[in-house]
Amino acid sequence: MPKFLLLKHYRGVPEKHPNCEAPMEQWTPEEITAHIGFMDRMIEDLKDAGQFVDAQALSPQGTFVRYGGEGKPPVTDGPFAETKDLIAGWMAIDVDSAEAAYEKAAYLSSAPGPGGLPLHEWIEVRPFLEGTPEEV
């Protein structure tokens, strides 16, 4: 059954909904707690429904690393404060269809933000490539 990655971005998304403009450090602590609590409940619901694969949050601190050549240490660049696209975290789900994945993404996007209003945050939905093509 198809798997999808629901990606939350800090940056690098289409034009944001007004509810989603304030960065989290400008929210109240209660608003942050409510937001995180919503996501925790969503993860529990996905587990109960047998649709959960993985959920992770990422530090905004990242470093680019590449091969430096035979016997040389890795070449590093960064960390950068201002990369164009910045991934905040993800949920990986296993559902029956793309439509079902979009519904979960929309629900995730309804997580409360400032004032307890739905954030309307853009969630990027990426299908996993299957390991094997269909037998027929």
Binding site: K3, K47, D48, G50, Q51, F52, V53, D54, D94, G131
Partner: peptide, 12 residues
């Protein structure tokens, strides 16, 4: 199906 065992147990 490459999902966690708990997920499959729940589904079943």
């Amino acid at each position: 199906f490459l999902v966690p065992e708990a997920t499959m147990a729940q589904r079943i």
